[in-house]
Amino acid sequence: MVHVHSTFWSGAREGFTVFLPLSVGLVPWALVMGMAMAGVGFTPLQAMGMNVLVFAGTAQLGTLPLIAAEAPLWLILTTALALNLRFVIFSAAIAPGFRGVPMPARWVSGFLLTDGVFAVCLDKMLTVDDPRWRLGYYLAPAVWSWVLWQGFALIGVFASGILPKQWSLEFMATIALIVLLVPMAKVRPMLLAAVVGGLSATLLRNMPLRLGVVAGIVAGIAAGFAAEHWEHRSKPT
């Protein structure tokens, strides 16, 4: 039995070693997440409930203002889906790395897929043969991310109770979204998608049911896609 599982653990050890230094970046996110959830008035139980069930920083931060403003459910869910669409692409890219891995482990792996884990694991997942080694290499960083995310969010939830209201710590959630957005917008079509999406949502703010957010997202996607086409035509490769 021991040697059957040993390739899993050697994969896990290697994945963890590679991911550990990068995982420090999760700490401020998780702290801000905890503070933001407490900032909109969640109890510690509600905050940690959201953190465990949703486990997606961007979708959590993005939907918090909508939940706090009592926006309609469909708008909250549409926004979360839009923010999570990148995972469909990540999932498709990394899927070949799960050949030979049993179904239950695939569901767990899917639930734990994050931007950082995807970036760190993709290469080895596609090149190593042994499915047990691959699963270990993937799950160690993924589980570690989950542990850090829950632990520091909990600290954030309680930290925000000690800090005074007039510090406006809830604005840290907006800053967190900005920090996510800026590196994305370094490519020109992506910048255009963001500018068009943001300005449309601002101009359409008076649409009923906060439809302006969805209209802004659709306009942004269309603008980015159109810009990509246009760039390709102007300089053929």
């Binding site: 923010l83 943001g198 603008a223």
Partner: peptide
């Protein structure tokens, strides 16, 4: 797939820009 790549940036901006 290519169109979906723009969804996160558009969605983040659609939340942040009106807020600020």
């Amino acid at each position: 797939q290519r169109a979906l790549r723009y969804a996160p940036a558009a969605a983040l901006a659609a939340i942040v820009v009106p807020d600020v």
